[in-house]
Amino acid sequence: MSEKTIRLIITRQKDQDGKSYKEEFELPYRENMNVISALMEIRRNPYNAQGEETTAVSWEASCLEEVCGACSMVINGKPRQSCTALVDQLEQPIRLEPMRTFPVVRDLVVDRSRMFDSLKRVKAWVPIDGTYDLGPGPRMPEAKRQWAYELSKCMTCGVCLEACPNVNDKSEFIGPAALSQVRLFNAHPTGAMHKAERLNTLMDGDGGLSNCGNSQNCVQACPKGIPLTTSIAALNRDTTLQSFKNFFGSDNNF
């Protein structure tokens, strides 16, 4: 075993109402470690850097290949997925914190329910259920499909919400992720049948599209490279036109 070690400073919290505190860990270095394997090492041997026995750190992970979004956390100040955060590329000590934009469940585990509620709010799906077979939908041009695929890479990981200065406890802003999904499903040939409904939802009530302050952190932070700010600007155009239609247009404004 090599003498080399890695150091981690983890922001921990016992439960939802618990006070957060920092705990330091020192682990034996292995080649090609990621943050997840470091956390697994702590689970295997739950002693902190002072040599005291402690509880294993809680975190979430699922796919381990950056497509599920479950293992997002703040690593050295930046929100990202811990599965693709390679120890060799990180400055030490590695600081791990939960994404505090969301309610912290325990240690690094957060509750991203608000994001899934947002997807329900904007109806981020293509409605195809009926009482009979509706048959095949209209076809989509290949170029458009490739474009839409980029938007569909969103894994609801929460990094864009964590990076956004306008998503916080003082505001109800829905955040970039769900907004971009509106653009995706409004572009789908069948999804477009509910376009006006989705746009009206974004204009309705508090925390909708207009809460965006154009800090454009989201597009820099998105691990999937989704053009979030382009989505937001495009929706600004769509909702502007929709609101004109609603006010000046006839009753046929779908």
Partner: peptide, 19 residues
Amino acid sequence: FQARHNTNNFSYFRNWMFR
């Protein structure tokens, strides 16, 4: 006063402009 500024961690041009 609705914003919580985070230019420390996200020191991008547009985030500074936002601030």
